[in-house]
């Protein structure tokens, strides 16, 4: 996984709340068996509307998505994270994220930043009045900076460390394989197994 320490880019204001993962990437795009090439499916229904923010030339190259509350609700599809990343987004800012989406994004290196709705509104206003406004999402300092404004955000130490080191969870867990072995030895005999199959 690519390390995430700090990222600077322009913003894309997505003034919608409850953006579910079916909108981020509709189900018809989920049939690929690779992790790349999902950018075409990103917001594909909304992108048919010429007025949709991603279709506006001034926002075509944004890398920081600034969205309304409850971003990423619905389906657990990690393709939503891949689609955003494949398209070029490195960070998403919202006042609230759905749990599974947040987990997926932080595992995959897409930084999801929670800011109060008033700060989200302020960023919307800033990037809409000047789309070239640069936004820095600084994980190390736990800050979002743009124009003359600096706002802090919270993220737990562990997740921050993992992202900054670019560490993969499986490798981290396998350091504790002894604990897993021990746990398995103590599992009760009545717990079901799928094999051999009984029907």
């Amino acid at each position: 996984m690519e390390k995430f320490i700090s990222h600077t880019g322009t913003g894309v204001p997505l003034r919608r709340s409850n953006v579910d993962t079916d909108q981020i990437i509709p189900a018809v795009w989920l049939k690929k068996i690779t992790r790349n090439g999902f950018e075409e499916g990103l917001f594909s229904a909304w992108r048919q509307d010429p007025e949709f923010v991603l279709n506006k030339p001034e926002f075509a190259h944004g890398t920081v998505l600034v969205a309304g509350a409850d971003f990423g609700t619905g389906s657990s599809r990690e393709h939503a994270v891949w689609a955003l990343q494949n398209y070029g987004f490195r960070a998403v800012i919202s006042s609230r994220f759905a749990d599974i989406f947040r987990g997926n994004s932080l595992k995959g290196g897409l930084l999801t930043v929670v800011l109060p709705q008033s700060d989200v509104e302020a960023i919307w206003a800033a990037v809409e009045s000047d789309p070239s406004t640069e936004i820095t999402v600084d994980l190390e300092a736990r800050q979002v900076r743009y124009a003359t404004t600096t706002v802090g955000f919270e993220i737990d130490d562990y997740t921050r460390w993992r992202l900054m080191e670019g560490l993969d969870d499986i490798g981290l867990t396998l350091r504790h394989v002894d604990a897993i072995d021990d746990f398995e030895k103590a599992r009760p005999a009545y717990k079901p197994a799928t094999l051999p199959a009984k029907v």
Partner: peptide
């Protein structure tokens, strides 16, 4: 529900952080 990275994690370790 879990994402695909977690699916891989469970397959490899039978655990989840």
């Amino acid at each position: 529900g879990i994402g695909t990275s977690e699916v891989e994690h469970v397959m490899a370790t039978q655990t989840l952080p």
